[in-house]
Amino acid sequence: MPDLKNIKLVSSEISGLWDSYMSDSLVICVLKQFLNNVEDNDIQTLLQHTLNLSIQHISIITDIFNQEGLPIPQGFTDKDVNINSPRLFSDTFYAAYISFIARVGMHDYTLTLNQIARSDIRKYFSKCITEYIGLYNKAAELRLSKGIFIRAPHIEVPKEVQFVGNQSFIFNIFKKKRALLAREITHIFSLISADIIGDALATGFSQVSRDKKISAYFLEGKHLGQEIIAELTSILVDEDIPIPATSESFVTDSTESPFSEKLMLYHALIMTAAGVSSKGAAIAQSMRADLEGMYTKLIAKIMKYTKDGIDIMNDNKFLEQPPQAISHEKLVKI
Rank of each mutant, 00 (worst) to 15 (best):
S215I: 04
E231A: 15
E220N: 11
D211W: 00
S190G: 14
E248C: 05
K212C: 00
I185Y: 04
D253R: 10
R183Q: 14
D199N: 11
T203A: 08
F250H: 12
S215A: 15
L219S: 13
I235C: 04
K177E: 15
T252N: 08
I197A: 06
A245L: 04
F218L: 07
Q226D: 12
E227V: 00
L191Y: 03
P242F: 01
I235M: 03
A182L: 08
T255I: 15
I229M: 03
S209Y: 04
K177I: 10
G225A: 13
K176H: 06
H223F: 09
P244V: 11
G225N: 13
I241D: 02
S249G: 01
I235E: 07
D195I: 04
E227H: 14
S247Y: 06
L224W: 01
A200K: 08
V237F: 02
L201C: 09
L180H: 02
P258N: 08
T186Y: 15
I235Y: 01
R210S: 14
F205G: 04
K177H: 14
K212E: 13
L191H: 11
L191Q: 12
D238V: 00
D240W: 00
I214D: 03
A194V: 07
Q207C: 05
R183W: 03
V251Y: 05
H223T: 06
A216F: 05
I235G: 06
I241W: 00
I241C: 01
K175F: 05
G225W: 05
R210L: 10
I196A: 10
T255Y: 05
A216K: 14
I241E: 03
F205I: 02
I188D: 12
G198T: 12
L180S: 02
L224I: 05
L201H: 12
E248T: 14
I235F: 01
L232T: 07
S215Q: 11
I173E: 06
K176A: 12
I197Q: 07
I185G: 09
I235D: 02
S209E: 07
D238I: 00
I197P: 08
H223Y: 11
A194F: 12
G204I: 08
I235L: 11
S215N: 05
P244L: 07
T255K: 15
I214G: 02
I196Y: 11
I185V: 15
K177R: 14
S247W: 01
T252F: 06
G221D: 10
I173M: 07
V237A: 05
